[in-house]
Structure formats: structure tokens, C-alpha cells
Amino acid sequence: MFGLTFEKLLLIGVLAVFVLGPERLPHYASKFAQFIKQLKAMADGAKSRMREEMGPEFDDVDWKKLDPRQYDPRRIIREALTDEPETVAAPVVAPTIRESAYAQRQRLLREGRPAPFDDEAT
């Protein structure tokens, strides 16, 4: 949770003892406990309200499927670009690798031919 390990929590506790002092520490610890309880009550209230408003469909929702951490934008784009329509059965053809404009120009210069000229280029 937030990258907090037991050692880090222990260090925060030790720092709190030194900063707050032994007299004020119990008071602030109880306030922190109340805050955590209120936070949990708010989360439970939101969950029950959601269950109320959605009705029986709330239990049918697959929450793991809706987790945004599972989506990899690179994979989504790759799948969208490589997917072919299912209605058209395209023949299997080896993909042609297009040469970049820079590579084309370098190849032409190596061959002793002039580089292509684009009238519309600025």
C-alpha cells in the first residue's frame, strides 16, 4: 500500500514520538484512529449506496475486468492496427517493409543518384 513497508512505518512512528513527544502522542494517535474509522465508514457508505442504486446488477459486475491497471496502451494499439475485419478473408501475404525517407535518400546517394526533390516541401 503506497510502497510503505513495515520498516518505513516503524520509522514514521519513531519520528512521531520524537516530534510530538510522549505527552501529545496518545491524543494524536486517537485522532488518527478516528480519521481511519471515518474513512472506512465513508467507503462502506459509498459501496452500499452503489449497491442500492445499481440493484441486483451490482453483484454481476466483474470488477477485475474494469481495473484500469490491466490495460496496456501499446498492446491495445498493436491489436487495433493488426486486426483485420472478420468478414473479409485476406490471403496470407508476407508484410512488406517500407524503407524510411531518410534510408531511401541515403541509398540513392550511395548509388550515385540524386536525392528525390519535393517541390511542396518548405
Results as ranks from 00 to 15, higher is better:
Met1Asn: 03
Met1Glu: 06
Thr5Tyr: 12
Glu7Ala: 15
Lys8Arg: 14
Lys8Pro: 06
Leu10Arg: 06
Leu11Pro: 02
Ile12Trp: 14
Ile12Glu: 11
Ile12Met: 13
Ile12Asp: 09
Gly13Asp: 05
Leu15Gln: 12
Ala16His: 02
Leu20Ser: 10
Arg24Met: 02
His27Glu: 14
Tyr28Asn: 03
Tyr28Val: 03
Ala29Val: 10
Ser30Pro: 03
Ser30Asp: 13
Lys31Arg: 00
Ala33Gly: 13
Gln34Val: 13
Gln34Leu: 15
Phe35Thr: 13
Phe35Met: 09
Ile36Cys: 06
Ile36His: 00
Lys37Met: 11
Lys40Leu: 12
Ala41Glu: 05
Ala41Ile: 02
Met42Cys: 03
Ala43Asn: 04
Asp44Leu: 15
Ala46Arg: 04
Ser48Lys: 07
Arg49Asp: 11
Met50Glu: 05
Glu53Thr: 10
Gly55Met: 01
Asp62Gln: 08
Asp62Asn: 13
Trp63Ala: 06
Trp63Val: 04
Lys65Asn: 00
Leu66Ala: 03
Leu66Trp: 08
Asp67Thr: 05
Arg69Ala: 15
Tyr71Met: 08
Pro73Asn: 01
Pro73Phe: 12
Arg74Leu: 15
Arg75Phe: 15
Arg75Lys: 15
Arg78Glu: 10
Arg78Gln: 10
Glu79Tyr: 15
Ala80Ser: 06
Ala80Cys: 04
Asp83Asn: 10
Glu84His: 04
Glu84Cys: 08
Pro85Gly: 09
Glu86Gly: 12
Glu86Leu: 12
Thr87Ser: 12
Thr87Ile: 13
Ala90Lys: 03
Ala90Cys: 14
Ala90His: 10
Val93Asn: 07
Pro95Thr: 00
Thr96Tyr: 14
Thr96Leu: 14
Ile97Phe: 14
Arg98Trp: 14
Glu99Arg: 07
Ser100Cys: 12
Ala101Val: 14
Gln106Val: 13
Gln106Phe: 12
Gln106Ile: 13
Arg110Tyr: 10
Glu111Arg: 08
Gly112Asp: 14
Arg113Gly: 00
Ala115Trp: 00
Pro116Cys: 06
Phe117Asn: 08
Phe117Ile: 10
Ala121Cys: 01
Thr122Val: 11
